[in-house]
């Protein structure tokens, strides 16, 4: 089910959290709301969920064309996964997952046995079979997150909303879960909107990235497009490492991997600059080199280990740097 957000503004007193924000989330897509803290991304997610309400005005939120602005959160059909999961800590995993079904009005509430079957089915879906009688505090962070996901899915939501889904996890679990979530999304095909401040996460995971800054949307597009064609210096800097080079009044942005390093003997005045190696870091497959240009500016360069070995560089050596020709 597609989500359509039109001209939403949200203020908290004198503070503007969202300013005239419009966004289309296509049916079945996995969309990332990416931005630094305070950019309004979580507020936007909460407005979609119905946990906050946009300021009165022309703004509109529609699921599959149907205006949901006046529908309370509980009847909007959204699955919401909170940053710290917000599991009910006095309930077992099974009771947590069954909650949404057990609070339905009596007429709509499934039989006990049906609820149990649904819980088991969801536990299997999130790969937590056998943990149904555990309490939240007996689970690891990654397991808790999947319980929260199963709980949100139990009500068969029309859209899935995730607030910083990996924010509270350590690096390794984060990576695994990220991959798992992508796969999971492809299996169930539910329109999903998630908030993150981690550009790598957003680029790797999503079909569509929405870069936000200061209550506004800076750019929307496929990860590759946004990365390769940033519309503003902010997006350039926010998505991955970048060198900012001043040349008089102008500022040029060059990504560290878009620079070739050559022996000083190969220096070509037409394209290259001479520079001196200041720092070398080569633990890992990618080596990072910091060089100092003739005008005193520093430049970060990323090379493969193999290239670095072939150059046989050490700190203090002179090299020629050349902007790599982009396809």
């Amino acid at each position: 089910m597609s989500i359509s957000i039109q001209s939403i503004t949200k203020t908290f007193g004198a503070y503007t959290a969202l300013e005239n924000v419009s966004l289309e989330v296509p049916d079945g897509s996995l969309t990332a709301l990416l931005g630094p803290s305070g950019s309004g991304k979580t507020t936007l997610l909460r407005i979609v969920a119905g946990l906050e309400f946009a300021d009165p005005g022309p703004g509109k939120i529609a699921f599959h064309g149907e205006d949901v602005g006046d529908i309370p959160a509980g009847r909007r059909g959204v699955g919401f996964v909170f940053q710290h999961y917000a599991l009910f800590r006095h309930m077992t995993v099974a009771q947590n997952i069954a909650f949404g079904l057990s609070v339905l009005p009596r007429a709509a509430r499934p039989q006990k046995s049906e609820i149990r079957d649904r819980v088991m089915e969801l536990l299997k879906l999130v790969k937590l079979e056998g943990l149904d009688q555990r309490r939240p505090h007996e689970l690891s962070g990654g397991q808790r997150q999947r319980v929260a996901l199963a709980r949100a899915l139990a009500i068969r939501p029309k859209v899935l909303l995730l607030d910083e889904p990996f924010g509270a996890l350590d690096a390794q679990v984060r990576k695994d879960l990220r991959r798992w979530l992508r796969q999971f999304h492809d299996e169930i095909g539910l329109t999903t909107l998630f908030v993150t401040h981690d550009q790598e996460e957003a680029l790797e995971l999503s079909d569509q990235v929405v870069v936000m800054r200061n209550a506004r949307i800076e750019q929307v597009g496929e990860p590759q497009t946004v990365y390769d064609n940033p519309r503003s210096p902010f997006v350039y800097e926010f998505l991955g490492n970048v060198n900012k080079l001043h040349a008089g009044q102008d500022v040029r942005y060059v990504r560290p991997h878009e620079i070739d390093v050559l022996f000083a003997a190969e220096f070509d005045p037409a394209t290259d600059s001479l520079a001196r190696v200041q720092h070398l870091f080569s633990a890992g497959p990618i080596a990072t080199l910091t060089v100092k240009l003739g005008d005193g500016q520093f430049l970060d360069v990323e090379l493969s280990r193999k290239q670095l070995d072939e150059l046989g560089l050490s700190v203090g050596d002179e090299v020629a740097v050349r902007p790599a020709v982009m396809a």
């Binding site: 969920a49 119905g50 946990l51 309370p72 959160a73 509980g74 009847r75 909007r76 959204v78 699955g79 919401f80 909170f82 710290h84 917000a86 599991l87 009910f88 800590r89 006095h90 909650f99 949404g100 609070v103 339905l104 709980r151 949100a152 139990a154 009500i155």
Partner: peptide, 23 residues
């Protein structure tokens, strides 16, 4: 957080109070 979670799952006021807040 837990009350908000209960609300998004469709719980009404008294359910939120008796099943989430009170425990």
């Amino acid at each position: 957080d837990q009350e908000e979670a209960a609300v998004t799952l469709g719980a009404r006021g008294w359910h939120v109070f008796f099943r989430v807040t009170l425990p």
